Structure formats: structure tokens, C-alpha cells
Simulated assay, not measured.
Amino acid sequence: MEPRQHRRNPRALEPVLRQWWEALARRSGFGRTLLLRRVIAAMLVGLAAVLALTPGRAISPDDAVVVAARDLAAGTVLEPGLVTLRGIPEQVVPDGAARNPSAVLGRTLAAPVRRGELLTDVRLTGSDLARTISTNPDTVSVSLRLADPGVATLLRPGATVDVVTVGERQDEPVVLARGARVLAVLEAGTHAGERASRLVLVALDPVSATRVAAASISQTLTVTFR
């Protein structure tokens, strides 16, 4: 047989409340203020205790999102050991957050991320990132390896540049694309004996992007700043 639970009769609190009220009425202005502060402080302490003991809403498996398992540099190709799932309340999950690791595996980071940081569509290279800085829904991204690696170190995401190559004559440069927007500057490995080189990811319309990609196969490229 379960033990009977005793409930305190609300009327039992009436004498206590009456004593507080009478004590408050007898106090002077300063004493009354001090007593009120003590009563309010006691009520707040009690409320805090109740809130601390009240269990929060459990995070369901549907709230899991993909986060970085450790600090990752821009240009990192995501592999299984580099990402993990973490449960986060739905109300704080940003738009575009990846829900399944398969959605990001094999993709390249467009910017550095910290351990535990959520991975969203605009953190990865691709059309979603390109459309964040262009109103043209057909905007695509294309990568450039510049003739002078030092130029890449001067570029920052959001910068506007023109893509240039050498024409048939050395003194006749050819502008392949105007108004390209820099999306990311990615670290890239180099072969022995070569200077450090980075890949620059830019957003362009499809026609210009195709022209730049074709030229990069056999021609040296650089950019001019706007």
C-alpha cells in the first residue's frame, strides 16, 4: 500500500501571511521597504528553485544537426571523421542547416569553422554560396588559380574583381569577366618546388564562368581590383 501523501492546507498559510502583513504595517518607511525586499528576495529564490527542478523539453533525434567535429580550415574537404551530429533545440537552428552528414560529405568548406559550429549551405562551396551575393538565380561559382599567389592573399570574400589573362600579344591583356565577386580564398596543396598557391572562388554568370574555366586550362590568370 502506497504511503498517503500529505498536502498542506492552503488555509494553514493564512496565519503566516497575516503575521507578515501586520509586521509590515508596524514598520516605519525604511523598515517597511527593507522587509518588502526580503520577502521579494525569498519569493525569487523559491521561484528559481522551482525552475531549476523543472525538466526542460527533451531534444528529439529530429533536432539533430551536423556540426564540425574539430576546428577546420577553409578549403577542407569534409570527411566522416570531420563532422558529427548534435542535438540542438529547433528554435535556435538556422535556415539551411544540414540535418544529415551525407548532405555535406565530399563538399568543400568556403570559410574556416570552429569545433561545434553548425554547418549550413552557405558555409560550403557551390551554387547556394554564390547566390548569397547575387540577385541572379543563375549565378554559379568557378575557381581560379592565379599566376601570382601573392595576389590571392589580398583578396577577401565580397571583393569585386575583373578576371584578366594575356592576349596574343603580351601588351594586350584580355578581360575574361568583369565584376566577379569573391566567395572564398581556399588553401590548396602544392607540389614540391612550387610556390604556395591558393584557389580563389568567384561568382559569375554562367557564360562568363565557362569562359574563365576554359581559359584557366591553358592560360595564366590574374585579377584586377575594383
Rank of each mutant, 00 (worst) to 15 (best):
Glu2Val: 10
Gln5His: 09
Arg7Tyr: 14
Arg7His: 15
Asn9Tyr: 03
Pro10Met: 12
Ala12Leu: 06
Leu13Cys: 04
Val16Arg: 13
Arg18Trp: 05
Gln19Asp: 13
Gln19Ile: 07
Glu22Trp: 07
Glu22Arg: 12
Ala25Lys: 15
Gly29His: 04
Thr33Pro: 00
Leu34Ala: 15
Leu36Pro: 03
Arg38Glu: 11
Arg38Ile: 00
Ile40Tyr: 11
Ile40Pro: 00
Ala42Lys: 13
Met43Asn: 03
Met43Trp: 12
Met43Ala: 14
Leu44Cys: 15
Val45Glu: 09
Val45Ser: 12
Gly46Ser: 09
Ala48Tyr: 11
Ala48Gly: 13
Leu53Tyr: 03
Gly56Ser: 11
Gly56Ala: 08
Arg57Gly: 05
Arg57Asn: 03
Ser60Val: 07
Asp63Val: 02
Ala64Trp: 00
Val66His: 05
Val67Gln: 04
Asp71His: 08
Ala74Pro: 01
Thr76Val: 10
Val77Ser: 09
Val77Pro: 09
Leu78Gln: 08
Leu78Asn: 04
Thr84Ile: 01
Ile88Gln: 00
Glu90Leu: 09
Pro94Asp: 04
Ala98Ser: 07
Asn100Asp: 14
Gly106Ser: 11
Arg107Asn: 08
Thr108Asn: 05
Ala110Glu: 02
Ala111Asn: 06
Arg114Thr: 13
Arg115Asn: 10
Gly116Leu: 02
Val122Phe: 08
Gly126Phe: 06
Gly126His: 05
Gly126Trp: 06
Ser127Glu: 12
Ala130Val: 00
Ala130Lys: 09
Ala130Arg: 07
Ser134Trp: 02
Ser134Asp: 11
Ser134Cys: 06
Asn136Glu: 07
Pro137Leu: 11
Ser141Val: 01
Val142Ser: 00
Ser143Met: 13
Leu146Val: 08
Ala147Lys: 12
Gly150Thr: 06
Ala159Thr: 00
Thr160Arg: 15
Val163Phe: 02
Thr165His: 13
Arg169Ala: 11
Gln170Val: 14
Val174Asn: 08
Val174Gln: 14
Ala177Arg: 02
Ala177Ile: 02
Gly179Pro: 05
Gly179Gln: 05
Arg181Asp: 03
Val182His: 07
Leu183Ile: 10
Glu187Gln: 14
Ala188Val: 01
Gly189Lys: 13
Gly189Trp: 02
His191Lys: 10
Gly193Thr: 09
Glu194Cys: 04
Leu199Ser: 11
Ala203Val: 05
Pro206Gly: 02
Ala213Cys: 00
Ile217Gln: 14
Phe225Lys: 08
Phe225Ala: 12
Arg226Gln: 07
